[in-house]
């Protein structure tokens, strides 16, 4: 008996992709294939600053809320820090449309695997899924369509510590000991991260309020130096943290305190 034509193979492997595609294949996302045309452009990420830093009990993620198209500000309440599961946050930079679709795909992939296979997907497995999505997007990104680069933060319950991964445009994955950042505003503030590490000590030893304050200051500097990163004057930045207990939003009051406006 088959309830859906595609179900037979997908359910044995737990792959949502195969379910959607109707069978095993190369693992490309069900997204439009890129049109052919002039290429040779660099993959450039735009229009954002997202930051993840470790702190004593986990990981903090903050992001500005500006979405741009060329020189125009399209939207100033964009949500760029998104949960992938109960202990994983993805902060996105680059094409907003593509990022949102990727997040949607990954969330369903993880849930489908866990429900059909009766065990959660491993951390390594989840990282692999994300890498594959980025790699599959390279041809489109090279044509200037839908490039995106995320920072992934998760709380590793086996090791009882937060973990942060950042990526290059070709899907290369790097784990970082202290912080990760992406987007056009991340370059200008890179030195400031190192300055904090050398003068104030590692982020992973800070308490939550201190780490949030440092991180928001860095985000404010990025907004000052990068036109595509929004400041906090109109709308407060997005800020979330992950601990062993899961993902929590910082309250408005905590963010204001972190910005020195309490």
């Amino acid at each position: 008996m088959t309830l859906s034509n595609a179900s037979e193979h997908a359910s044995s492997s737990g792959s949502l992709l195969e379910l959607l595609r109707g069978g095993p294949d190369s693992g490309r996302l069900p997204f439009p294939t890129p049109v052919s045309g002039p290429s040779g452009r660099d993959i450039d990420t735009h229009s954002t600053t997202v930051i993840a830093v470790k702190y004593k009990d986990g990981v903090i993620n903050v992001a500005d809320r500006r979405a741009t198209a060329g020189y125009a500000v399209m939207y100033d309440q964009a949500e760029k820090v998104l949960p992938l599961d109960d202990h994983t946050l993805i902060s996105i930079s680059g094409s907003f449309a593509k990022s949102v679709e990727v997040v949607r795909y990954l969330r369903h992939t993880f849930k489908y695997f866990e429900r059909s296979q009766l065990q959660p997907m491993s951390q390594e497995g989840k990282l692999m899924e994300l890498q594959r999505v980025i790699v599959n997007n390279v041809p489109a990104a090279l044509q200037g369509i839908g490039a995106f680069i995320p920072v992934l933060s998760t709380f590793d319950r086996e090791q009882d510590q937060g973990r942060i991964y950042f990526y290059d445009a070709l899907g290369g994955q790097f784990e970082t000991a202290e912080y990760g950042a992406a987007g056009s505003g991340s370059g200008p503030i890179r030195g400031a991260f190192e300055y904090i590490l050398r003068t104030k000590g590692p982020f992973r030893d800070m308490d939550r309020a201190t780490a949030l304050k440092e991180t928001l200051t860095l985000l404010e500097i990025a907004a000052d130096l990068d036109t595509a990163t929004g400041g906090s004057a109109k709308h407060l930045p997005a800020a979330k943290y992950i601990t062993a207990d899961g993902i929590t939003d910082f309250t408005e009051q905590e963010i204001k305190t972190g910005l020195g406006r309490a």
Binding site: M1, T2, L3, S4, A6, S7, A10, S11, L16, L19, L20, R104, Y105, H108, K111, Y112, R115, S116
Partner: peptide, 13 residues
């Protein structure tokens, strides 16, 4: 499995 497949295909698309 059939129910999970139908639900996830619909929920995603």
């Amino acid at each position: 499995i059939g129910a999970i497949d139908v639900a996830h295909a619909e929920g995603f698309s």
